[in-house]
Design a protein around this nucleic acid. Structure first.
Lengths: 148, 148
DNA sequence: CTAGATGCAAACAGTTTGCGTCACT
DNA sequence: AGTGACGCAAACTGTTTGCATCTAG
């Protein structure tokens, strides 16, 4: 799907050096089914470039995320957050400071699912409304608060 | 809101010993605004029980999660997961093995937001459809696969 | 009295960083 | 040639575990 020259062009567009390691990491990340973790990518990459370092994989995944070449599946992969609100609700998540506010379920129209894969038993639906919270958008355009 | 006797009853109902530490941890977790991390709960609890250990806080949070007394804000707080699917889509998340499948945006009816708090600029909406995946529901009722 | 809870320290997993060397542009 | 990438090891953060002691039931 992505030839070497495609990858070089992609890197060029994003102002990144087109190294061999980067290409292999990128190919691994995009070709793996599901949503691989850095470790999983490392394992796959190692088969092609046995001398690669895990730190390089991490550094490049971060670089790709920052450039928008890849994304994170979820903003919630930091530390455990505890929820004690038993009422049905969703979350407003600030992409800048990662703060989380509750949002009553009634604030969202009815959700309807179509075309679910066979065999998947739905238990509940969690909606994250991603955006910039008030305190972050008032605090200049760059570099958020990074609070709880 | 929760008196000591309420807490004792709650513990009793869930077959947990009603210790002082547990009560203080529970009260901290439920009284804190937002969605506290174990560290944040620890900091608050320490003011009332200075001798408490962080391990005790972790153990009890886990106990509370297992008993359903508290919940996790998100199932995604493990390691970083990389997303390379640029098409708009949501996720089917298995609560048993935590596997993540993509779910095309078209499979979900239009979402409409009402009553957003002032100042929150919405960027996008991420929907997690939580349930039991096919492979887990076929594999007996207890103890999932815990795969990627 | 006994199962289970606590506290401590050590172990772990995931991720980041500092630094000397090497490669892309 | 110079900037930035690589690889290694060490540092860090968040979380779990083993074990001896203590406590609720």
């Amino acid at each position: 799907m992505h030839s070497l020259t495609d990858f070089r062009a992609l890197c060029h567009r994003h102002r990144l050096a087109a190294t061999h390691q980067r290409q292999v990491i990128y190919e691994a990340a995009t070709s793996m089914i599901g949503h691989p973790s850095p470790e999983a990518i490392y394992d796959k990459v190692r088969k092609k470039v046995p001398s690669i370092s895990l730190a390089t994989v991490y550094k490049n995944i971060r670089t790709f995320l920052d450039s928008g070449l890849l994304q994170e599946v979820s903003l919630h992969h930091g530390s455990l957050r505890v929820e004690s609100n038993h009422a049905p609700h969703h979350h407003l998540v600030c992409v800048r400071c990662r703060s989380i506010m509750d949002f009553d379920e009634a604030g969202l129209g009815r959700l309807q699912l179509r075309k679910l894969p066979r065999g998947f038993q739905v238990k509940r639906i969690a909606v994250d409304i991603l955006g910039i919270c008030r305190s972050c958008s008032s605090k200049g355009t760059r570099g958020g608060t990074r609070k709880a």
